[in-house]
Design a protein around this nucleic acid. Structure first.
Lengths: 220, 220
DNA sequence: AATAAAGTTTAGGTAAATCTAAATAAAACG
DNA sequence: CGTTTTATTTAGATTTACCTAAACTTTATT
């Protein structure tokens, strides 16, 4: 199937929202995710339904079909492989690669994708810790992980960051938070859900609820 | 300046046509090059003139401005670097990379381009032998070798054969065409782009367009 | 259950890049 | 030099992906 870049971006976003909660994806949520207007989402939903990539009935939300999921996984595979390339081969830091991969992922060539994967040593996770689907669309389950916002353990290890906005990633970098960083939770403030953290050999600092929701951790 | 992919492709094609002959580029020639209609070219010419990337007066043809040339060289740089990457790192053969590079070239990031160049060892020519502009838009002399299909000189020397199919190589062998062979072009037939050739002390013979595209030559 | 609020869709419109057909200008020719 | 041919431009449509404003559904709240 020949998809436009816009269509691919919709598929990818629907996949992402379905992953977070397996209910139907709402028009509003998708509009927010894609930074567009609900009316535009409705337009595109009709088109993607026509192409049998989503199930959609008006007012009933959106879900990917099997075909749609397959498509999404191909896009995600390309995206994450390019992120690996940029970080491992071109020495980009993990917070700058998302936007570039966002463009590179739309070059649709299976041969290119598979050769790139091979060149990188068929990696199974990207620089943010997310699993990379293989050539058949098989993807390792995301690790047992919660957001720092929900975690209750005192000592944690950072395993992924779910938000790819450059601003956030730069902030985390400045604080010394990256994959594998070990964090100690000093205090949780009820009134605004902010969290005071400490990294070994560094002064403690506080992060907002919003940031804590984007940091995925596992207990150690 | 922020250009659409369509605009970039126009700029690149104008550059190419100007390179071949330094006169103004005609609407028709550009339409043929871009596989589009003359009317579309006229529309785009107005837009690119507005952006000061070309000089254009109606019925007078098109030429790149200094700014337009700079833009073209950036695009060509990206294209040729990606071709190097595909051939040298991903083991593509040189005849399959053009279309992929055509897509990759539109990812506009100076940082990516320069890092890619560095990663490849700052190559100065691409896998076809064409020079790669440096980060400042400086480019070495255009290569002397082309396919026999494109060459315009009458007397040529064979420098490479790009197709490895046994059938073709047997055919060339039978005709006495090998590396270093000197060819005289007797006639070019417009209707099917076939070419009549002569090798010293042998009877003349004709080759198809397809074959002529696989024979790389340089003028002597 | 009635009404308010929130969410979604429709209707109608815009901008980019294309097209066809018709009009006009430039070039080539007798 | 006028006429025909070729090249180019204009006019008007089309498609894709958006948008706003208004209408309509669904859900939440009294």
């Amino acid at each position: 199937m020949n998809l436009s870049i816009a269509e691919e971006n919709y598929i990818k976003s629907i996949y992402k929202l379905e992953e977070d909660s397996p209910d139907s994806v709402t028009t509003n949520a998708l509009a927010a995710e894609l930074d567009t207007k609900p009316a535009s989402v409705t337009d595109m939903a009709k088109k993607l339904k026509e192409k049998k990539l989503i199930d959609y009935e008006k007012y009933q939300g959106i879900n990917l079909t099997a075909e749609g999921k397959k498509t999404a996984l191909q896009i995600i595979r390309r995206h994450r492989l390019w992120e690996c390339f940029l970080v491992n081969k071109l020495a980009f830091s993990w917070e700058e690669v998302h936007e570039l991969a966002e463009e590179l992922e739309h070059v649709r060539s299976e041969k290119l994708t598979n050769r790139l994967s091979e060149f990188l040593g068929n990696p199974t996770t990207d620089p943010h810790g997310d699993p990379i689907p293989d050539a058949h669309g098989k993807m390792g389950k995301p690790r047992i992980q919660t957001s720092l916002h929900k975690a209750r353990a005192k000592r944690l290890e950072v395993v992924a960051v779910s938000d790819r906005s450059t601003a956030l990633l730069e902030f985390l970098n400045a604080k010394g938070i990256r994959l594998g960083t070990q964090l100690d939770v000093i205090e949780r403030y009820e009134f605004d859900n902010s969290i005071e953290l400490k990294i070994k050999n560094q002064p403690a600092f506080t992060i907002s609820e919003q940031v804590s929701k984007s940091i995925m951790v596992k207990p150690i």
